[in-house]
């Protein structure tokens, strides 16, 4: 039987003998996963630690766990530290980008407003949108077996992000650098700008140039914006990260 796995926003130092889950997580366990007493359940916490437990009781508003212990084989975070700075795309595409980024071990996504963003989100809905994307990220982490959360940062204008990021990479079909020739400082950590459906505006490209960011191309074709995150993460993992045999990736 497949063991269900969920994220619990708890601080567990030394796990207690039992743990009571209530609120929406209990509702989800009871009515969607439909857990039963004695069934095993894996969960992970904000500290990035995975635990194994068993269900002891399922009640209307709470679920009790017992036999809680930290898993002997803890999931490892991705060996590369990637932040995607994603121009906000239309809602389903953005969800797809975040879900795939979570599955591929991305550390952080920064949704940014750019000149050519087609998705006009009113300012009063920023918090709601942010919470939704964080939930999509969380669900991707639960499904993919990672124990570190993909962090989604609040919506910001791209110009503010450019001011704070020193060594950035931007993806542009006409750029000169190929991923295989990335300077060594980007092999372990990357901040990657991905345009929305309309790409980057000339003003944004000028700002990238002014900050001496590295323009990178990933082939001669123009990719849809939601294709880019899984492609770039896969390519980086192949060249520098988790898709390499362990001995090579440690160098």
């Amino acid at each position: 039987m497949r063991i269900s796995r969920i994220y619990l926003p708890l601080q567990l130092g030394q796990p207690d003998e039992t743990l009571v889950i209530d609120g929406s997580k209990a509702h989800y366990l009871r009515n969607v996963l439909r857990v039963k007493p004695q069934q095993p359940l894996n969960f992970f916490t904000p500290e990035g630690i995975e635990y194994e437990a068993k269900i002891s009781a399922v009640e209307k508003r709470q679920i009790t766990l017992f036999e809680i212990k930290a898993s002997s084989q803890q999931p490892r975070p991705a060996s590369i530290d990637t932040t995607l700075i994603q121009g906000i795309s239309s809602s389903d595409r953005m969800d797809y980008t975040i879900q795939k980024a979570a599955e591929l071990g991305c550390k952080k996504i920064m949704p940014v407003l750019t000149d050519f963003c087609s998705q006009k989100i009113p300012a009063h809905k920023f918090d709601k949108k942010h919470a939704h994307w964080q939930a999509v990220a969380l669900s991707g982490c639960e499904q993919s077996g990672r124990a570190d959360l993909l962090e989604v940062s609040p919506i910001m204008p791209i110009k503010e992000v450019i001011e704070t990021v020193v060594d950035g990479i931007y993806l542009e079909p006409g750029a000169q650098t190929f991923l295989q020739n990335l300077p060594a400082q980007f092999h372990r950590q990357q901040h990657i700008y991905i345009g929305p459906e309309g790409g980057f505006s000339p003003t944004e490209l000028e700002l990238f140039e002014a900050k001496k960011y590295t323009g990178v191309q990933i082939g001669q074709r123009v990719l849809r914006t939601e294709t880019v995150a899984p492609v770039i993460l896969s390519a980086l993992h192949t060249l520098y990260g988790d898709f390499m045999p362990p001995a090579e990736s440690k160098q």
């Binding site: 009515n31 389903d92 939704h132």
Partner: peptide
């Protein structure tokens, strides 16, 4: 698709989907 939790007690409302 993934179901987001909703803060209510009814068994028949599973949550929300995007």
């Amino acid at each position: 698709r993934s179901i987001n939790s909703l803060d209510q007690d009814e068994d028949w409302i599973l949550g929300t989907v995007s």
